Computed example of a mutant assay.
Amino acid sequence: MPATIEHIDFHGLPALRLRTAGGAAAVVSLYGAQVLSWSPPGGGERLYLSPQAVFDGRTPIRGGIPVCFPQFADLGTLPAHGFARTATWSVVTERTGADFALLTLALSDDATTRAAWPHPFRAELGILIEDSRLDLELEVENTGDQALAFTAALHTYLAVREVEESRLEGLHGFEYRDKLDANRIKRDSGDVLLIEAETDRVYHDVKRPLLLREYDRSLGINADGFPDVVVWNPWVERSAAIADLPDDAFRRMLCVEAAAAHEPVRLPAGETWWGRQTLVAL
């Protein structure tokens, strides 16, 4: 069976299902250009999607890979994480090959975005599944005649068997901002990062691939263009306080996000920026 891209309805929202001949699959919502599911060949969902996620076309979808643009978190005057994750994107490209499926979605400025953020722009998100790999590439073009600045992230919710048994490797020695400790700047000194409490960190200028180890599987995580890595887990009390998360959701998820958050991206008129995140099931 060749690779396919199928237009589907996903909980009432228009979406696309990508499949490869080798058995990889993904679901992408046009609302937010959000990857909601990804399973490599052999099965096993690798993204966490909350069973209490809201699919009303107005509310951000809890889980998968939301696109944060043109603002990450509360680093600005826009609503948290910007407007891209609650906008409807358009399909630019659908391509399939011997064992890959590629989808490109686009979002451009309009009256609604300019009212919140007065800059002309065009954003494209490329989504590729091939073998055991998921590639996401975000490209932002400044289509105006003045420079603009933004922060951004691919807010990746990874599915884990048990977060307390997971090990995130590759962050040793890097500086990070600890949001849970008055945004103090610290340096990671451990060989691995263990999640044993609420965690909300932005690691700066991470220059090596990461590895998420579980007892029976691992996931390689690499970024290009995105200088920072965000690690987030809501833990017990925060998980219980978030309406669209089950109380025990913290056990089954870990956000490891490719981000440009420490310093805004400053983009001159007519120029283009891109950032990529690659996940490889091992």
Score class of each variant (00 low, 15 high):
87 A>D: 12
258 A>C: 12
202 V>L: 12
21 A>I: 05
238 R>Y: 02
138 L>D: 12
159 A>C: 11
176 Y>P: 04
249 A>V: 00
234 P>G: 08
144 G>H: 06
151 T>E: 01
223 A>D: 09
212 L>N: 10
145 D>K: 07
176 Y>H: 07
151 T>I: 03
146 Q>I: 04
170 G>Q: 04
102 L>W: 09
39 S>V: 10
217 R>V: 08
187 R>K: 04
10 F>I: 08
128 L>E: 15
91 V>Y: 11
199 T>K: 01
200 D>N: 13
221 I>M: 09
259 A>K: 03
136 L>T: 11
16 L>C: 12
203 Y>N: 00
32 G>S: 13
75 L>A: 05
198 E>W: 03
253 M>E: 05
142 N>P: 10
48 Y>E: 14
151 T>F: 09
173 G>V: 00
9 D>I: 08
127 I>T: 15
212 L>K: 12
241 A>T: 14
131 D>N: 14
266 R>F: 03
41 P>H: 05
245 L>S: 05
143 T>M: 10
183 N>K: 06
158 L>V: 14
94 E>N: 06
232 W>R: 11
76 G>A: 01
110 D>H: 06
62 R>T: 06
84 A>D: 07
113 T>E: 06
74 D>H: 04
224 D>V: 09
217 R>T: 08
276 R>Y: 03
100 F>P: 03
129 I>K: 03
183 N>L: 07
61 I>S: 12
250 F>P: 13
177 R>G: 00
54 V>G: 02
224 D>F: 02
276 R>C: 04
90 S>Y: 05
116 A>S: 15
224 D>C: 02
128 L>Y: 06
145 D>Y: 11
94 E>R: 15
246 P>E: 08
84 A>V: 10
214 E>F: 02
118 P>R: 05
267 L>R: 14
190 G>P: 02
189 S>K: 09
55 F>M: 07
86 T>V: 15
79 P>W: 13
231 V>D: 01
65 I>E: 14
185 I>Y: 00
19 R>W: 00
88 T>Q: 12
223 A>W: 10
22 G>K: 06
246 P>K: 08
46 R>N: 01
257 E>V: 06
21 A>T: 14
229 V>T: 15
278 T>Q: 11
216 D>E: 14
215 Y>I: 04
203 Y>C: 00
85 R>E: 11
244 D>W: 09
1 M>S: 10
192 V>K: 02
262 H>V: 14
272 T>F: 02
36 L>T: 12
17 R>W: 05
72 F>V: 01
144 G>R: 09
133 R>V: 12
149 A>G: 15
264 P>G: 05
196 E>L: 04
31 Y>E: 08
162 E>S: 13
228 D>C: 07
147 A>C: 02
173 G>E: 00
38 W>M: 07
16 L>V: 10
168 L>N: 03
281 A>D: 11
96 T>N: 10
196 E>P: 01
42 G>V: 04
190 G>M: 03
92 V>S: 07
114 R>T: 08
275 G>P: 12
32 G>V: 07
236 V>F: 05
7 H>R: 13
7 H>V: 04
274 W>E: 13
49 L>H: 13
105 L>P: 09
24 A>Q: 04
163 V>W: 01
280 V>S: 14
268 P>G: 06
242 I>M: 13
42 G>K: 07
173 G>S: 04
98 A>H: 12
256 V>A: 02
23 G>P: 04
162 E>F: 04
